[in-house]
Design a protein around this nucleic acid. Structure first.
Lengths: 223, 223
DNA sequence: GATAGTTTCATACAACTGTTTGAATTGCAA
DNA sequence: TTGCAATTCAAACAGTTGTATGAAACTATC
């Protein structure tokens, strides 16, 4: 196999263009122009435009999912097979949020691409997302082990709401900034993670989350 | 002015098609065929495709926003200018959820259209959504009056999270059903509303929400 | 250095898109 | 009925899209 030069150039250019301008108005011609390759190269190397998009998204979401599972595994091992609920939730929303938010200027192309994928939800990506359920089941199982007394339905809702807060924060970060006149700091990702985890924990346990003083919990002091 | 027959037929056909098949693959030709009118009628009556979509969305979201404000006003008058926080949140998420969720077969075209609008986020709709901030400020103000001791930033986050749970539930209702093997009942809209309100309230007040026994609160008993 | 397989290239294709045009038709008022 | 504006219509327009083709260039193997 020759050097992947063309293939790689297409992937890089496509990710950057999609990140900058969205899926809606980036054509194959834009991509090949930016990559400095021939138009036919896309179909030769990827088969179709949709498969190119799918490959971009799969690559990134595999990375995120692996990170999630690593954190989950670490948390379960630390707890002897039964992770704390806040650690589970942190493993669930942390990688995604860290991947997509943060100081504007150091936000990577990959992050901006994933934000687009989260907002625009184009068909090839939606197809992949549908398979994500199996991945989430592992977190549901961990939550069941962590909170065996909690009803199964409540656990699903808790998991669902945690993801809701994470994804909505990614999707609507601009609106929240505008609504709060910049008072909500979207750059302090760790604080956002802790805030979401804290809300999810109280939603699941009905009690304020004070169990893990090691991690700095959400600063909820009045200002 | 003649009878709005053509105009109305276009609006109805467009809303139904967009609801059924999404914005991505519905063309003006599909719409005029379904409406039984001429292709040029769309541009004659609406100016452009985007303006047609915008009109559809504006009509529906004005209705939702009015409903929201009515509920908010009623809650504030009942409390003498200071509504309970759970009533405010109910006014915020209730109309949207009631408009979009509920038993599948009685789900209206309008509801399905709004779900699409929530998922696909096409340019003309995004432009309109950006103006929604002013509307949300009224709820932020009401929350400030209701919880004057709570920090402003926390209130914004609470508002943001409440919307997050509502919209994510609408967007990902199918996935939640699949993840929970149907155990999460997406048909009981009122229960979902109360669940979201309850989580938001504890997130905002740090205490379990037991203040209003009149409304049935979320059933969080283990099963 | 011939050969076979891979990769690149310019170009054409075929289909679809929203929009425009200008003539026909309609409906209403005088 | 006449006149005038609003509406409808068939047709074409102008542009874009993703994809396919077949020849050319390259690369590595024998």
């Amino acid at each position: 196999m020759a050097s992947d030069h063309t293939r790689t150039a297409i992937l890089a250019a496509a990710e950057r263009l999609y990140a900058d301008r969205g899926f809606g108005d980036v054509t194959l011609r834009d991509i090949v122009a930016a990559a400095g390759v021939n138009l036919a190269a896309v179909n030769y190397h990827f088969g179709s435009k949709d498969e190119l998009i799918a490959e971009l998204f799969v690559t990134r979401s595999i990375a995120t999912n692996r990170e999630r599972l690593n954190e989950l595994k670490a948390a379960e091992e630390a707890g002897g097979g039964r992770a704390d609920i806040d650690a589970i939730l942190r493993a669930l929303v942390g990688p995604t949020l860290r991947g997509c938010l943060g100081p504007d200027r150091e936000r990577s192309t990959a992050a901006r691409f994933m934000i687009r994928a989260s907002i625009e939800s184009v068909p090839p990506i939606r197809r992949i997302k549908n398979r994500e359920v199996d991945h989430l089941r592992k977190f549901a199982a961990a939550m069941r082990r962590s909170l065996p007394d909690r009803g199964e339905v409540d656990l699903f809702w808790g998991l669902h709401f945690a993801l809701a807060m994470a994804h909505h924060t990614i999707r609507e970060s601009e609106r929240l900034t505008r609504l709060s006149d910049g008072k909500c700091d979207l750059n302090d990702v760790q604080a956002i993670i802790e805030r979401i985890v804290a809300v999810s924990v109280v939603a699941l346990t009905g009690a304020a989350a004070e169990k893990k003083p090691a991690a700095k919990l959400v600063a909820r002091d009045a200002r």
